[in-house]
Design a binder for these strands. Structure first.
Lengths: 163, 163
DNA sequence: CGTTATCCCACGAAAACCCATTGTATCCCG
DNA sequence: CGGGATACAATGGGTTTTCGTGGGATAACG
C-alpha cells in the first residue's frame, strides 16, 4: 500500500493568540496531491508526547487496514476487543480540521492540550503521516535521536528563540 | 531492488550569494530517468561530513523497506521504537527541494550548515545516491582514497581555485 | 450583550520565476 | 583540417509571487 506522496521535512511555526497555526506549505502540498481535501486529521501520538497528523485519504486507508486485520482473526475474542479499541482510537479520539485559504488551522483546544503545544509548533514529516511537537518536549525526550534534536535547535535559532 | 540508472561522475559548482547551486546536468539526467520528478532529497550523510542526495523515487523505496521490516515484528515494543526513530531520521531529518528550469536548487540553510557547504559544492555520484561535499573537507578526510582526492584537486584547478 | 469562531485584508521576508551573459563543447561547412 | 556558428550548461541579477503572520471586522452563539 505504498503511498505515492510522502511527508518530509521540518518547520517551526508560531501559534498565535487565537490558537491559529500555519500548516507548512510543503506538507499542504502532499495533502493536496494525495486527495483534494484541504483538511487534516489530528490525533494524540500513540507513544510520543506530541500530535500525529495526516490527511483524510490516509485515515480511510488506515480504516481499511484494520478491517482486513479483523477478518483474518474473526474467531478470536481478544482480536475482536483489540479491533474495537483501535477503531475507537482511530476515529473517536481524532479531530478533523479544515485549513483556510492562507493555510492555517485553528488548533482545537483538546488537541492542543493533548499535545502540550505552546506558542511554537514543530512540524516533522514522517512519511505517511507527520507529527506536531512542542519543541521543548522533543528536546527533553530521551528516545529522540540527537541529530533530530539538532534540527529542532536549528529551527529555534532561525527564529531567534534561545533553547 | 537494483535501480536501473545510477549516479556517477563528479563536478564542482559554485554556490551563489542567494544560496543557489546548479545540480550537474548528468545527475539531473539520472533523476529524470528514474522518475519524472524534478526534485532532489537532501540529508546529512550518516558517516561523512557531507550531504547525501537522491531522488524521491529512491526515498519511497527506502520507506517501503522500513515498512516491511516493521510488519515482521509488529508485536515487539523495541522494534516499534526503532521504527519510529528511523522514520524520523529518514523523513524529518531530510528536505525535499525542487530544481528550476535552469537546474538549480536553493540549498536550504539547515542542510548547508549540516554539510558545511561554503562557496563551492563538489558533487560525487555514488550509484544509488550522490554526495555533496565541501571540497576542503574532502581533502582533509583521512578516510577518502587519494585517487578521489586527486579528482577533487583537479576540479579545483579547473576552476582556478588553489587548494 | 459578551464571548467566540470566521472571514478578510495587510505587511515583510523569503522563495520562485524570468531574463541575460558567459564559457565550453559540439557541429557544420568551407 | 580549421574556423565559425550553434546548443547547452552554469551563473548573475532583477522582479514577481507565495508564505507565514498579525490585526481587525463581521457573524454566530450562549
Amino acid at each position: 500500500m505504498a503511498l505515492e506522496h510522502l511527508f518530509q521535512g521540518s518547520a517551526l511555526n508560531a501559534v498565535d493568540a487565537k490558537g491559529r497555526v500555519s500548516i507548512p506549505s510543503f506538507l499542504r502540498g502532499v495533502i493536496e496531491r494525495r486527495g483534494d481535501a484541504r483538511t487534516i486529521v489530528l490525533a494524540k501520538h500513540e507513544s510520543f508526547p506530541c500530535l500525529s497528523a495526516y490527511d483524510p485519504a490516509y485515515a480511510a486507508l488506515k480504516h481499511a487496514k484494520l478491517e482486513r486485520l479483523l477478518e483474518k482473526e474473526e474467531t478470536n475474542a481478544d482480536a475482536q476487543l483489540e479491533y474495537q479499541q483501535r477503531n475507537l482510537m482511530a476515529f473517536a479520539a481524532t479531530e478533523e480540521v479544515p485549513y483556510d485559504s492562507s493555510g492555517r488551522i485553528l488548533l482545537p483546544p483538546l488537541m492542543r492540550r493533548k499535545g502540550q503545544i505552546g506558542e511554537l509548533a514543530l512540524f516533522l514529516g514522517t512519511g505517511e503521516t507527520f507529527q506536531i511537537w512542542n519543541p521543548e518536549l522533543l528536546l527533553k525526550d530521551p528516545r529522540i535521536p540527537d541529530d533530530l534534536k539538532d534540527i529542532a535547535r536549528f529551527r529555534l535559532d532561525e527564529r531567534g528563540a534561545s533553547a
